[in-house]
Computed example of a mutant assay.
Amino acid sequence: MVEVVLAGALAGVVGVLVVLRERAFFTMSLTHATFPGAVAAAILGVSIPLGAAVAAVALVAVAVAIGRIRSQGPAVASGVMLTAGFALGAFLQSVAPLAIDVESFLVGQVLAVTGADIALTAVLLAVALGVWALAGRHLVFSSVDEEGYRSAGMRPWAPEAVSLALIAATVVAIMPVVGAILGVALIVAPAATARLLVRDYRWMLVLAPLIGIGSGVLGLLASRWLDVAAGGAIALVAALAYGAAWLARALAERGVAARGAAGRGSIEARTP
């Protein structure tokens, strides 16, 4: 439960950055890119988070290099990273079968987390909060108006590098909770839900971690009550929260439009 709370908070805080910078597809690609590193680490008998981190750094470097090719772009680079990463993980698992269940890398195995996993998540949460406190305005400015940020004499690559590093570290940290495949749900869904409900990024930084924590806790409890995988339950709760927020906003907007139309009709009826 401690790991779920920390992971939900971390995913929410970093997820705001993902949503503001429109890096959801990149995040999904990165979650797949960590899979071969985790498998390789298990084969070699070393730390799985370390192996996932090395794979993430290597494939991010490849994606950045592909993205610099004018005829390709970041979307193509993310697509290549997604498919290549997952394919490499499947290949490694097939040539060197593991004694442990590879499915735990894909959907998480939260009941097997260690003290080191909890410590890593807590440290990254503190780092993410510190980055937002020290450089939040730069991150937001460069996210919403990159050309204006460059025209102001600042370099967009710096906040971009910080953003990619935080996203990669978060993907690695929450792997024990939701795995390599479902990690994008816990990162993106709470922040996207918060953006439907509030517009100010500062309120998003409050609401998104709370939604992430709620998704984690409810998903973990549901997995116990229903005897289902915790990672899948957590991701599903996060997705349902987004769906509920979208429906509530749509109904609210329809109600406002209906009241506006009724008001205009009454004015026209009173007009001679």
Rank of each mutant, 00 (worst) to 15 (best):
V2R: 11
E3L: 02
V4H: 00
A9W: 15
L17A: 03
L17E: 04
V18P: 05
L30V: 05
F35P: 09
F35M: 06
P36S: 09
A38Q: 01
S47T: 04
L50Q: 03
A52I: 13
L59D: 02
R68G: 10
I69A: 12
R70N: 08
S71E: 13
G73L: 02
G79T: 06
A84W: 01
A84S: 06
L92S: 02
Q93T: 01
A96M: 15
A96D: 07
A99V: 05
L111Y: 09
D117A: 11
V123Q: 02
L125F: 01
R137S: 04
R137P: 01
H138Q: 12
E147W: 00
Y149H: 08
W157I: 12
W157Y: 08
P159R: 07
S163T: 15
I174K: 03
I174L: 05
M175D: 05
I181D: 10
L182M: 06
A185G: 01
P190F: 02
L197P: 12
V198Y: 06
V198P: 14
Y201M: 07
R202S: 04
W203C: 09
W203G: 09
A208L: 00
I213N: 12
G214A: 13
G216H: 11
V217I: 14
A222S: 15
A229V: 01
A235M: 08
A238F: 14
A239K: 04
A239R: 06
L240D: 05
L240A: 15
L240E: 02
Y242S: 07
G243M: 07
L251C: 10
R254H: 03
R264P: 04
P272G: 13
P272E: 09
